[in-house]
Nucleic acid binder design. Structure first.
Lengths: 144, 144
DNA sequence: GCAAACCCCAGTGGAGAACCGGGGTATACT
DNA sequence: AGTATACCCCGGTTCTCCACTGGGGTTTGC
């Protein structure tokens, strides 16, 4: 139930890509890592899995970098964390004597998961960007 | 976001204690472990943390065992998992350059947690027991 | 007093998180 | 063409936590 570093990094990186989305220019790992102070070699791995999941695409070579494959309002936070956290179809693991009680417990846990996922589904990268901008405005107001 | 073994075991054990609550007699680790097929030495540790959290009390010596400290409808699933999962006050860990973006991300994660916790808050051990009984009835119906 | 229970502490094996590093490959620019 | 600049892939490391096992101590009922 804790927000992992992985997911936070991924969200921050995609948020950065969101704000540069309209330029059409790719953003480089180094730039993202510097702005959000994320270890760059680690971020590289995360972006690789995001690429494999189809959320971003990469351009190799000089002047390369990463771009979102979709508009920021089409990518939900659920898309991000579920791919980075590796949902794995959650597997319904074992064979062994599953008691009635454990079925009941797992059933209610599904409700918990669905409640959490509902929240993640309703927010998009766009929403995050807007919240950040709103927060920036607030900070400026208070500064004056 | 996955249900850990720990929490599942703890919930199953408390569910077992719930059904024997009206007898007033203590239930032993071995009995609980056998019925829910949980490794007993492991369950011992979980019951110890539940005891330290005040959810159960223990009776030592021969004919000893564990009892709920409260009625089953007074113990929410949130009480159980938060104590077993060790909430640790979630610590707001680091000092370092927290960016505006990461504050926004964490703010939305709080919403996710609260949604999950809301579900856990609304269910009690009593509810689990009733669901189990209902499920048993269903199974009997289908069996005929 | 003795066996049945809980109590405490310690250790182990495996998995995953959060990194770091090296060498390979594609691409833009000169 | 050649070179610098990016991404790409594969590996290892340290650390923490989970799930579990084991040994020895203490309380209690018969």
């Amino acid at each position: 139930m804790e927000l992992s570093c992985k997911s936070e990094y991924a969200l921050l990186a995609l948020l950065e890509l969101s704000t540069h989305y309209n330029t059409g220019e790719p953003l480089q790992i180094r730039q993202i890592a510097a702005k959000q102070n994320i270890p760059d070699r680690y971020l590289e791995q995360l972006l690789a899995t995001l690429r494999r999941a189809g959320l971003v695409r990469s351009q190799r070579g000089a002047k390369g970098g990463y771009l979102l494959t979709q508009e920021p309002w089409k990518i939900t936070l659920f898309d991000v964390v579920s791919c980075i956290e590796g949902i794995d179809a959650q597997s319904e693991q074992e064979s062994a004597p599953t008691t009635t009680e454990s079925l009941v417990v797992r059933g209610m846990w599904r409700e918990v998961r669905q409640a959490a996922e509902a929240v993640l589904q309703k927010y998009t990268l766009q929403d995050l960007a807007e919240k950040r901008d709103a927060k920036h405005q607030m900070d400026i107001m208070y500064y004056i």
